[in-house]
Amino acid sequence: MTKVAMTVNGKPVTGEVEGRTLLSSFLREGLGLTGTHVGCDTSQCGACVVHVDGVAVKSCTMLALEAEGAEVATIEGQAAPDGTLNTIQQAFQDHHGLQCGFCTPGMVMSAAALLKDNPKPTEAEIRHYLEGNLCRCTGYHNIVKAIMAASGQDVSVLAAE
């Protein structure tokens, strides 16, 4: 076992991990942050997306030790400490951007990464950016709508489906 130290949602954390411990396992089992979901464990679905040093990564496809010293942000750090949802989370609720909610942590973290680089994405840019995030419930339409709304854009231009 090796010691690992990183910052998660602004708090310094340490733990003991094996070389093979995935970042997703360290977050979920080591730190109890089970908001990061593991859908496929084969790098396909994006349910496990977190930010490492400000960029979106699939935490099931990164070793915990690769995040040594990094700033990690997970879904648990998105709402305010009093539970008030952030703009993206609130937009997902308002626009029914989730059904079972399994993909939602990854969707929200991917959306946050997109809006950081591109504050007013087009519908096509949102769909393209979410290529690595699979949802088996919503049909994506309301997710796209929520992200449009979170970026302060008029969602009435999106065809109702």
């Binding site: 997306v49 960029v55 979106a56 990564v57 699939k58 997109l114 290529e131 690595g132």
Partner: peptide, 9 residues
């Protein structure tokens, strides 16, 4: 290549 998260790693 792939998707944004794959491209970041």
């Amino acid at each position: 290549i792939g998707d944004p998260a794959v491209r970041n790693r």
